[in-house]
């Protein structure tokens, strides 16, 4: 594979990672409302706590502890847009639109803070984060078995995947980061703060989505994320083993994931609004994953810049066969 082709494949994987994390972030913001009645039956306080924690989970990227470790998000995205040594500067979409999507996601979250009772003041925000998290863990504890079942049912509803392909469990934070390699000092610190993970495992002939998390809301996000990863394997299976390894070495970094989460939810919102009627979201994502690298880049550019054109392109996926690249 030429260097140029390899760069295209790395960019394609970064785009798919962006969508995977975006689908997960969007689910974290909204999916608990799909099972509102079931959650209210378990504990009527949980729904509001999940609303609050969803906002905290996004807004944390602009608060002190994250900024100390990773820097101020607007500056990060400005540097990405400028040419130079930046992990996303060679990715035309992340470099150009990351800052705009991050700001839009943040504004949407800030606008909901008052309604949901989340503080915007930094010190209060830090205390509220711990308070809300502890209340969630305490209230979930007696209902964990039921909540695991509910998380699997919810992920199945979101994607249409059978529940027997979903393996979700609660796990202590202490055990979660160990399975994820960190490549930098920042990554090693970040690994300590992992509260959930989702991926795919082969079990016999079947590929199974596996998720582990400290709370129900994160567990649901991780099942959604792991299923998106499973679907996006359609976009990696044409690579040779050697090219696959090179692409993953370049694109799949723990250190990139906060940035994908910070911006991906907003990107996923744009995409969801343009999805063809009557076609399962899982199929559309599969067709996107199977597009040649440059075609995926063009389509996602249209999703951001020319939504009506993107709507037509998305509707044509799977009918022209051109996604088989």
């Amino acid at each position: 594979m030429t260097d140029e082709r390899l760069r295209d494949e790395i960019n394609k994987r970064l785009t798919l990672n962006w969508l995977i994390q975006g689908a997960s972030q969007h689910a974290g913001m909204t999916a608990h409302h799909l099972v509102r009645d079931e959650l209210n039956a378990i504990d009527p306080k949980l729904l509001r706590l999940y609303d609050q924690f969803a906002l905290i989970g996004l807004l944390q990227y602009w608060h002190l502890d994250f900024v100390m470790l990773f820097g101020w998000p607007p500056r990060f995205w400005r540097r990405a847009a400028a040419q130079g040594a930046h992990p996303f500067s060679a990715h035309p979409l992340l470099a150009r639109y990351g800052g705009m999507l991050a700001a839009a996601g943040r504004k949407r979250a800030l606008d909901r803070c008052k309604e949901k009772g989340v503080s915007r003041l930094p010190i209060l925000f830090a205390f509220q984060t711990l308070y809300v998290l502890n209340r969630i863990i305490t209230r979930e504890w007696p209902h964990r078995a039921r909540l695991i079942g509910l998380a699997r049912e919810l992920a199945s509803t979101v994607w249409g995947i059978p529940t027997d392909r979903l393996d979700g469990k609660f796990s202590s934070q202490a055990f979660l980061g160990a399975s994820i390699p960190a490549r930098t000092l920042r990554g090693a610190i970040l690994r300590i703060g992992v509260v959930g993970l989702g991926g795919v495992e082969r079990r016999g002939d079947a590929l199974v989505v596996v998720a582990r998390a400290t709370t129900w809301q994160v567990l649901t996000k991780e099942l959604v994320k792991g299923t998106a990863e499973l679907i996006c394997l359609h976009g990696l299976n044409h690579l040779s083993d050697d090219d696959y390894r090179r692409v993953m070495d370049a694109a799949d970094w723990l250190e990139y994931e906060p940035w994908m989460l910070q911006t991906g939810g907003e990107l996923w919102r744009h995409l969801l609004a343009l999805m063809p009627d009557g076609q399962p979201v899982a199929k559309t994502l599969m067709y996107l994953a199977r597009l040649p690298a440059k075609s995926l880049e063009s389509l996602m550019l249209s999703v951001i810049e020319r939504p009506e054109w993107a709507r037509e392109l998305l509707a044509s996926l799977g009918t022209s066969g051109r996604e088989d690249g």
Binding site: N17, I20, Q21, S24, F53, I56, G57, Q60, Y61, F66, T129, L133, W159, G160, I161, P162, R165, G177, S179, I180, L190, R191, G193, V194, V195, G196, L197, G198, G199, V200, E201, R202, L207, V210, A213, V218, K221, E222, K225, G226, E229, L230, I231, L233, H234, L236, N237, D241, Y244, M248, D252, L254, E257, P258, L261, P280, A282, K283, L285, M286
Partner: peptide
């Protein structure tokens, strides 16, 4: 018919490393 949940995946190829939720 392509099944979104059943990609052709070489048996000997490792899966991508799980993706994480970091922070909160």
């Amino acid at each position: 018919e392509l099944d979104p949940f059943t990609p052709d995946w070489p048996k000997t190829r490792p899966m991508p490393v799980p993706k994480a939720q970091v922070g909160r």
